[in-house]
Design a protein around this nucleic acid. Structure first.
Length: 430
RNA sequence: GGAGGGGUGGCCGAGUGGACGAAGGCGCCGGUCUCGAAAACCGGUAGGGCUCUUACGGGCUCUCGUGGGUUCAAAUCCCACCCCCUCCGCCA
């Protein structure tokens, strides 16, 4: 959520930021309601003041035992109280409406974000790793997974449905090894605290991160409860410190968390229908930071490095792009995507998204810190990035490390996690 | 699922109708003392909203889990909901 003060005092900046995203929002009603709100507050508080002082005097009179005057005053005060109640109902209505509106306004892009009206305007800032020069026709991860007997999408569809996956044998081991490697890397070398949060979260938590109220259609909701399956660990982990005031010395707070992620992928029918690129359930290791506002953009750069280091370690070719204004997520002020090379498609595909939300989420979540010398609490900046999406990492490994005989070599760094397995070879399919 | 207890400031904890935004302690900040620090002592220290002010800061108002109700007046009484704890039952 944006700062109400900003909306009031510099609405042009908000309008500019929103339109850079290619979003149309009508602010006229907001301006009107905001004025109305302040008028109502003034009115209510004047009456409250009258009631409070009167009430105090009345209390004194009663204690002094003067019973005759009080009755009249009492009646007067009662009338005031009733009026206050009526006005307050109005005020609540207006304030709710204002908040509901404010919750649907996206974040303002950071000034360093390139302007653009679509994916094509994203700016590549780095390319890394060697793309293998194959002297054979590469298979895609589905064919590889099937022939190696490690990925069974047909049976997953039987068990649950489309867009679910079933790993077996070395495939399941691969997925688990990657999770372990990522968590170890980030906790032991990058200073993140490992967390294992709930895989469902309540409505408030989702509002705090900006997933609700706007994106309900993307979430799996638990029937009969106001709980939703998490679409990313960002939701539960960012909410760890909701409604808390941290000490400045604690910043930055850094968490790494593994969770499965559940997404309806509404509106993406037919998109990436093949393979495990786009699933209703996938595993992800997520990095979350709560940062000092003045340091959040440095923190974003180091987050990006932490994230990319997984691909470095696995020796997978990747590139980094800065998302343009139109491609930015709702809550984000700036986002870098890391994309891994997918051999069969001959293109890079998103495997991590690293964002600075500034105080957009922390204002919703009410996460603050107290400045060192004392003084008013300030909102932290929140950041997060995948470190990495595990299923897509498997795609990257299978496709980039495939050999002409159909086997797949395991990246060196991963071998210890694979119990010494150096290569996945064809086996009898069941 | 059954029975009981409880949710108060950054934290712990007292407070059963008016002078309570709230004792006391811890923590934090400032000061005295010290070469310096610790200890001791003295003082300060909740958050939100509206508003005034160039600023320093001030005024009003709301907030004691959340939402309603009673009352001139609610942390305190009543109702509903949420959450936590203890015991019993069931269970990975």
């Amino acid at each position: 959520m944006l700062d109400m003060k900003l909306l009031r005092e510099d609405i042009d900046r908000v309008k500019k930021g929103v339109s850079a995203r290619g979003v149309e929002i009508d602010f006229d009603n907001f301006v009107f309601l905001d004025k109305k709100r302040r008028l109502l507050i003034k009115e209510v508080e004047q009456l409250e003041n009258k009631r409070n002082t009167g009430s105090k005097e009345l209390g004194k009179l009663k204690q002094e035992g003067k019973e005759d005057q009080p009755v009249k005053i009492q009646l007067e005060l009662k009338t005031i109280s009733e009026e206050i109640k009526k006005l307050n109902e109005n005020r609540t209505r207006v304030e709710t409406e204002l908040r509901d509106f404010a919750l649907t306004i996206p974040n303002i892009p950071h000034r360093s974000v390139p302007y653009g009206n679509g994916e094509d305007n994203n700016v590549e800032i780095k390319r890394s790793g060697e793309i293998a020069d194959l002297d054979f026709e590469p298979l895609d991860h589905v064919e590889l997974g099937k022939s190696l007997g490690i990925l069974d999408l047909d049976r997953a569809a039987k068990i649950t449905g489309a867009r679910f996956s079933l790993y077996t044998g070395a495939g399941a081991r691969l997925e688990r090894s990657l999770i372990n490697l990522m968590l170890d890397l980030h906790t032991e070398h990058h200073g993140y605290t490992e967390t294992l949060p709930p895989f469902m979260a309540n409505r408030e938590s989702f509002i705090a991160t900006g997933n609700l109220p706007k994106f309900e259609d993307d979430l799996f909701k638990i029937e009969g409860l106001e709980y939703y399956l998490v679409p990313t660990a960002e939701v539960p982990v960012t909410n760890i410190h909701r409604d808390e005031i941290l000490a400045e010395q604690e910043l930055p707070v850094k968490y790494a968390a593994y969770t499965p992620c559940f997404r309806k992928e509404a509106g993406s029918y037919g998109k990436d229908a093949r393979g495990i690129i786009r699933q209703h359930q996938f595993n992800k290791v997520e990095l979350v930071k709560l940062s000092h506002p003045e340091e959040s953009y440095e923190e974003l750069e180091s987050l990006l490095e932490d994230s990319a280091s997984v691909l470095e370690l696995l020796e997978l070719p990747y590139r980094i792009v800065t998302l343009c204004t139109a491609d930015l997520g709702f809550s984000s002020a700036k986002t870098y995507d890391i994309e891994v090379w997918v051999t069969s498609e001959r293109k890079y595909r998103e495997i991590s998204s690293c964002s600075n939300y500034e105080d957009f989420q922390s204002r919703r979540a009410n996460i603050r810190f107290r400045p060192k010398g004392g003084g008013k609490p300030r909102f932290v900046h929140t950041l997060n990035g995948s470190g990495l999406a595990v299923g897509r990492t498997v795609v990257g490994i299978l496709e980039n490390y495939q050999q002409s005989d159909g086997s797949v070599i395991i990246p060196k760094a991963l071998i210890p996690y694979m119990g010494g397995i150096e290569r996945i070879e064809k086996s009898e399919s069941r």
